[in-house]
Every structure is written in C-alpha cells, then in structure tokens.
C-alpha cells in the first residue's frame, strides 16, 4: 500500500470538495482523497478527474459494498504513469462523451450505479474498458487485504494446514 498515504489536509477542506464531486473528493492539486480523509492517492501523470473516474469505474465494474475505496484506488493506481497517460486520457474522453449522450455532464455526474453501468456497457468492447477490467481481476482480488472481507483465509501451511483447524467443521448440513 505504498502508493497510499494518510494525508494532512484538514477534514473541512476535504468535505467541502467532497460535496462538489460526490463521494470521491478531488483533494486539491495532485491528490484525490476519501471524503472522510481515511486515505488519499497522489496522482502524478494523470489528472485528478481521470483518477477519480478510474476509481468510480473500478467500483462500478466490480462493486463490493463492503470494500472501501482504498482497495479500488490501489487497483487503479498503476495507470498513473506516463506511458498509460494517453490511453487513460482518450478512454476517459470517450467515456465522458458516452455519458453526455446519455444526458449527464460526465460519467461521474451520473448518480446511480445503474446509470453509470449503462454508460459502461456502451463502451465495454473498447480496449480501454477491457484493459481496466482485466487489470482489476488481479489488481483488486489479489490484494491480501481484501481476502478476510470475503472470508478467504489465504496461506495455511505455516499454521499446519486445516487438519486441526476446521477442514470438516461444517455444522449446518
């Protein structure tokens, strides 16, 4: 989680921005942050709008209501590099154009997940969408931090396997 860091913006500054952009706050130059200031992600190569859009896309592609934004932020942070910049820029222009066609200012301005999903469906065959979706399969689900939220226990050899730790403990059958 090296890309993420607790940041020092005041809660009030963050909240005021959060109101402006919805759930995700553009936390002023070079950062986007959670409205509750629990985390922030620094952007260097791409813009705050682009990062906020990628983050919302990630949530809408693989929505898990019990996963905080920080996991999605880690998953899309790899696009914030110079050689992805053009792909991201063009992809998001196309995404926002599709949102306009559907009657919204841009993708982030569509308030309901269903509305955003409909916009995504209209671009799902594009290389941009497929790259973002494909990257999330490992970028999101291979984060060890999310495994406990799904109940998955991961490595077990160092604990002696499950032979004495409930391999056959099912009690509701």
């Amino acid at each position: 989680m090296s890309q993420l860091r607790k940041q020092g913006l005041t809660r009030r500054a963050l909240l005021s921005r959060a109101v402006a952009t919805g759930a995700l706050a553009v936390a002023g130059p070079g950062f986007i942050a959670a409205p509750d200031a629990a985390w922030a992600v620094e952007v260097t190569a791409i813009s705050e709008h682009q990062m906020a859009t990628l983050l919302q896309m990630a949530r809408d592609i693989y929505p898990h209501d019990r996963l905080g934004d920080r996991y999605y932020a880690v998953a899309v942070k790899s696009y914030d590099v110079t050689d992805q910049k053009q792909m991201v820029a063009e992809g998001i222009v196309a995404l926002d154009a599709a949102a306009k066609q559907a009657g919204f200012d841009n993708y982030l301005a569509a308030g309901w997940e269903d509305e955003r999903v409909a916009i995504l469906r209209s671009i799902e065959d594009t290389p941009f969408f497929q790259t973002v979706r494909g990257g999330l399969v490992t970028g999101l689900y291979n984060q060890k931090g999310i495994w406990p939220i799904f109940g998955y226990e991961g490595e077990s050899f160092s604990q002696g396997g499950y032979i004495n730790r409930g391999f056959d403990d099912i009690d509701w059958l």
Binding site: S156, F157, G160, G161, Y162, I163, F167
Partner: peptide, 8 residues
C-alpha cells in the same frame, strides 16, 4: 507423510 488438509 499424511495429508495435513492444507488446501493448496
């Protein structure tokens, strides 16, 4: 040795 039910 016998299986330790490690699961991998």
């Amino acid at each position: 040795m016998a299986c330790q039910q490690t699961g991998f």
